[in-house]
């Protein structure tokens, strides 16, 4: 593949990011809710807070953040600051900036989401491939099948069940939170273990909930490939079934799965929003949920853009890698 091809993809990537940014810019504006007023509403609801003239305060903050300008001008302003990699401030948690909110939350989410998504991808695909493999033992098929059934139970409920039985009743793992009450983050072995212990249950809830999907699609893929001539040919050639499984079967079936992986990262955000809340983890899902709740659009933009860029980059990369996986596809056609 030539540089020109790569350049074209990068250009496309930028277009995707621009378009996604534009769409996300306008969607929260369809709602009439103002994040600044929402901030006061929260205070008023919980604390008997009643400032003299709420509308005046809201108006002055609207002016401060440029929300009183026409929408197109806000759009231009937003796009130009975006080009300078400035995502702005949280309107609801002012004076926090969006970047700070993301940076603060990201480690927790990366730890949990990326690890669980990768684990579930690996486990699911291996189980799925094995389940489609004629020589696979029966018990393996049973496991795969039960994961498929488990998929129907919402991860939230799995989370609650895990908490109830493993953490609360059996007292084996912490109930919630990202580290023990009263301890303060530090670079130490004990603290790392503490954090890890708190991540196990949410990770299990996410993995149990998603493995089934991979099993299902990988198995379907595997079955189709078994009918292909090259597998037949390899068998007749006398290659060992292990070699066939690994080199002919897994590799070919993996192509669409990898596309699916990039897409799954997008879907996992929704589960994460919910699971992070159930387990009280201060991750990206929690920040996004809070922002959606109060329509804090700059934070919504920031996080959605961040996710968009990550997924779009992944998808373009996967596309560039297609020819490596399947030489019959040429990029420059």
């Amino acid at each position: 593949m030539s540089l020109w091809v790569i350049g074209r993809r990068i250009l496309f990537l930028l277009m995707v990011i621009w378009a996604a940014a534009t769409i996300t810019f306008f969607i929260p504006r369809l709602s009439s809710r103002n994040p600044i007023r929402e901030r006061f509403a929260t205070l008023a609801r919980t604390g008997g807070f009643s400032p003299g003239d709420l509308e005046t305060i809201v108006a002055s903050y609207n002016q401060k953040f440029g929300l009183d300008k026409p929408l197109w001008q806000q759009y231009v302003d937003y796009m130009s600051s975006l080009a300078r990699f400035d995502l702005g401030v949280s309107l609801n948690l002012f004076p926090k900036t969006v970047v700070e909110l993301i940076v603060e939350a990201l480690p927790w989410s990366i730890g949990l989401l990326i690890v669980t998504t990768i684990l579930s991808f690996i486990i699911g695909n291996i189980l799925g491939a094995l389940a489609a493999w004629p020589q696979a033992p029966n018990w393996l098929r049973t496991i795969s099948t039960s994961f498929v059934l488990l998929q129907g139970v919402p991860p939230v409920l799995l989370g609650v069940l895990l908490i109830f039985f493993i953490a609360f009743r059996a007292n084996l793992l912490p109930i919630s939170g990202s580290y023990s009450i009263g301890s303060v983050p530090e670079w130490s072995f004990a603290f790392a273990i503490d954090v890890l212990r708190h991540q196990i249950l949410p990770a299990l809830a996410l993995i149990f909930g998603t493995v089934g999907g991979w099993v299902l699609s990988m198995r379907g893929m595997g079955i189709t490939i078994q009918g292909e001539d090259y597998v037949l040919f390899a068998e007749h050639k006398g290659l060992s079934s292990r070699t066939i499984f690994r080199d002919y079967y897994l590799r070919n079936a993996l192509l669409p799965q990898v596309t699916g992986f990039a897409l799954a990262l997008g879907n996992v955000v929704t589960s994460a929003i919910i699971v992070e809340q159930i387990f009280g983890l201060p991750g990206l899902g929690n920040v996004l949920a809070q922002a959606i709740r109060v329509n804090d659009f700059l934070v919504i933009y920031g996080i959605v853009l961040f996710i968009t860029i990550a997924i779009a980059t992944l998808m373009v990369l996967v596309e560039l890698l297609y020819p490596l996986l399947d030489p019959r596809i040429r990029l420059d056609q």
């Binding site: 996300t24 929704t270 968009t308």
Partner: peptide, 15 residues
């Protein structure tokens, strides 16, 4: 499709 794909569907549904 690729442009719409990464935008959390959930967000739009909520709106």
């Amino acid at each position: 499709s690729q442009i719409l794909m990464p935008i959390p569907v959930f967000l739009i549904q909520i709106v």
